[in-house]
């Protein structure tokens, strides 16, 4: 096992989760490449080869648009997430990129104090490692939800 590679992806995952759970959403798009792709879909759609996503962005600018809309336009009750992620399963390095697969569980904490298990699933990522010393970024992140069912709404990204 390439420990250095493992740690770099693990660090990217930890920073990813922090931007969401600690409400630093403005930093979230920076974890993607400029042409980075982000999709939230269901295991059912994914396995059947159906392309529909709940959220689909094909550029970092689109991710920034989503954050701005969440901050300025959309209306939803105050809530936060807590991610718990598993160890990343990493493929072989190829052209400065690796495939990574990581399980996650997300609890949603409402302003009322209600805590629920909101989502479980798997991240299927393509990570660009960049030059040595540079921070790794997501060229593609597919969030595959185990369930097809979303409770009420999905505002904050997963």
């Amino acid at each position: 096992m390439n420990i250095d590679l493992q740690l770099r992806v693990q660090n990217l995952n930890a920073r990813y989760v922090e931007t969401i759970d600690e409400n630093k959403l403005e930093l979230w798009p920076d974890l993607f490449t400029a042409e980075g792709c982000y999709r939230v879909t269901t295991a059912d759609n994914f396995e059947r080869g159906l392309p529909l996503a709940l959220i689909y962005a094909s550029s970092r600018a689109m991710l920034r648009d989503r954050v701005r809309s969440l901050r300025e336009a959309n209306v939803y009750e105050a809530q936060r997430y807590r991610h718990v992620i598993g160890p990343a399963l990493i493929g072989a390095e190829h052209d400065g990129q690796v495939q990574a697969q990581t399980s996650f569980m997300v609890a949603r904490i409402m302003h009322t104090g209600e805590v629920t298990l909101f989502a479980t699933g798997c991240y299927r990522d393509r990570v660009v490692l960049g030059a040595s010393g540079a921070e790794a970024r997501f060229a593609e992140k597919i969030v595959i939800l185990d369930s097809r069912l979303i409770d009420t709404l999905l505002a904050i990204p997963l």
Binding site: N45, L50, L52, R148, L149, I150
Partner: peptide, 10 residues
Amino acid sequence: LLGSYSQMLP
């Protein structure tokens, strides 16, 4: 078909 998902409305 492009796909589907469900929403639980309380």
